[in-house]
């Protein structure tokens, strides 16, 4: 096979992998939007906060140590212990559930029956609060995240495929990052679990009922507040997964919150209310932007990926505003 053909395949494979990473972020948005109609602007910051908390717990960092030291003149930084990754993840999940309770208690509860734009603006405020709170709690330095996920090229795959190209044709075997492979498996497990949860559990059915009609759900005794806590907890868990995957690549730092920018075109494409839509949208954006960069990028100066993703999303907005899998909005006047 020609090297060009094989490289195109490689780009498609890596586009699929990148798409999975985008989907992980988009999933959190979908969960909250589906259950409460809120576009959660803070989802990216939640991923950052979850990853910071995970590293902080794992490394035994004293929370708010800078603040404590500044006030009391002490020099405390670490407890002197480390926590195994699995326990640290469980503890972080606990923190994210606590966060969901706090958000419901102090933000959402007071905004019941408000316009969606008010709720959206509340999440903007929440995002800024969490940015500062996270820095205050764990510091603004770049943290290394290591939960034992392998990374780097899969040598096995390279060796297995290097012979596919014509000898001397300049093909070096397929490159796929092991971290991306793990992310793909995690994403599949996550989507299947979430789908089964929403289809076959009482809580899941309650979530769907709330998503379909708040008033009707309330009338049959479903507690909106409990549902919101559950949804935000699940979104917190998804944020933790996204934070771990992205943070393992780049270290945990503020820029992690900007991964939300990558999720927006995915949501526009897949629809804001569909879990499979988030996955399919992510895959289309991932493959599309990588192929566009591979074929057209060199002709127009490169760095086309962000542009392409949003252009594709814009096209969908024009022809199918609800996205591929979103619910068609029909409002009668």
């Amino acid at each position: 096979m020609s090297a060009d053909f094989l490289y195109t395949l490689e780009v498609i494979l890596n586009g699929l992998m990148a798409g999975v990473m985008y989907s992980l972020v988009a999933l959190g948005f979908v969960l909250i939007y589906k259950a409460s109609g809120i576009f959660n602007y803070a989802q990216g910051v939640m991923a950052l906060f979850a990853a910071m908390t995970l590293v902080g717990i794992q490394t035994g960092q004293v929370p708010f140590s800078h603040l404590i030291n500044a006030i009391f003149g002490t020099e405390v930084h670490h407890f002197g212990w480390t926590v195994p990754a699995v326990f640290a993840i469980i503890l972080t999940l606990g923190v994210m559930i606590l966060f969901a309770f706090i958000v419901e208690r102090y933000v959402l509860k007071h905004l019941v029956n408000q316009e969606p734009i008010i709720l959206f603006m509340a999440t903007i405020g929440l995002a800024y609060f969490m940015e500062g709170f996270g820095d205050l709690m764990w510091g603004a330095d770049i943290k290394t995240l290591d939960v034992g996920i392998p990374s780097g090229a899969s040598v096995w795959l390279e060796d297995a495929t290097i012979g596919w190209g014509v000898e001397g044709g300049g093909f070096y075997g397929f490159y796929i990052d092991k971290l991306d492979m793990v992310a793909a498996v995690v994403a599949i497990v996550l989507v299947v679990t979430l789908t089964l949860f929403s289809q076959y559990t009482t809580t899941g059915r309650a979530l769907r009922a709330v998503a379909d009609d708040h008033q009707a759900a309330l009338s049959v005794g479903i507690s909106l507040r409990t549902i919101w806590v559950i949804v935000w907890s699940i979104a917190g868990f998804v944020a933790l997964v996204a934070g771990v995957m992205w943070g393992s690549k780049s270290g945990v730092q503020f820029s992690l919150s900007l991964i939300a920018l990558k999720a927006l075109p995915v949501l526009m494409l897949g629809g804001f209310t569909s879990i499979p839509g988030a996955i399919v949208g992510g895959l289309i954006i991932g493959v599309g932007e990588k192929l566009f960069e591979f074929w057209v990028g060199p002709l127009i100066g490169g760095a086309t990926e962000n542009w392409f993703a949003y252009m594709l999303a814009l096209l969908f907005l024009v022809f199918r505003p609800q996205g591929l899998f979103g619910e068609k909005i029909i409002e009668r006047v």
């Binding site: 490289y7 490689e10 780009v11 890596n14 992998m17 990148a18 990473m21 300049g170 070096y172 490159y175 990052d177 992205w246 690549k249 780049s250 820029s255 992690l256 900007l258 991964i259 990558k262 932007e289 990588k290 960069e293 591979f294 990028g297 100066g301 490169g302 760095a303 990926e305 962000n306």
Partner: peptide
């Protein structure tokens, strides 16, 4: 060879695949 990376640069798969090629 000029290889631009868009802000913030969290995703650079295309650029490094190009370098690998």
């Amino acid at each position: 060879t000029e290889i631009p990376v868009d802000h913030p640069g969290q995703e650079q798969k295309s650029q490094w695949l190009q370098i690998r090629r």
